[in-house]
């Protein structure tokens, strides 16, 4: 699971609608996999990304220290875009768990696959 995808994931247990994001990463295995750099796509996804959550996660996992505030325009920000690319597209959570800050539900990650199944009374 890329950190891009983690950044867009929220707890979906019934009734858990406030304080259900970001899921805290308790990872036992985080890997780096090379990916093609696509600055247009990164810029596009930055509109959807929650920047503070990304900074916190990247820092907690020791991947990168991202700046506190994004520049208004990403034009000419090649270095920053490459750094964000490394965090979003090349950093994968392989094993561990994602914990909801609100209801403490734990979503397991195994071989990179997130288990989002709920038991029936959580739906």
């Amino acid at each position: 699971m890329r950190l891009l995808t983690h950044n867009l994931l929220q707890c979906h247990v019934k009734g858990c609608s406030t304080n259900n994001y970001p899921l805290r990463v308790e990872a036992t295995n985080v890997v780096h996999k090379e990916a093609d750099f696509n600055p247009e796509f990164i810029t596009h996804m930055l509109q959807k990304i929650e920047w503070n959550a990304l900074r916190t996660t990247a820092s907690a996992l020791g991947v990168a220290e991202l700046p506190e505030i994004l520049p208004l325009s990403m034009e000419g920000q090649e270095e920053l875009l490459k750094q964000i690319h490394l965090v979003l597209m090349e950093t994968h959570i392989m094993d561990g768990k994602l914990v909801c800050p609100g209801c403490s539900h734990e979503y397991l990650v195994t071989h990179g696959v997130g288990n989002m199944l709920l038991i029936e009374d959580e739906v």
Partner: peptide, 21 residues
Amino acid sequence: LEREVDGDLFLQDMGQGVGFR
């Protein structure tokens, strides 16, 4: 996984909803 697809995968029941922002 064996076929090393490029997407991020989730074990999920669509009847329980999709948990994305």
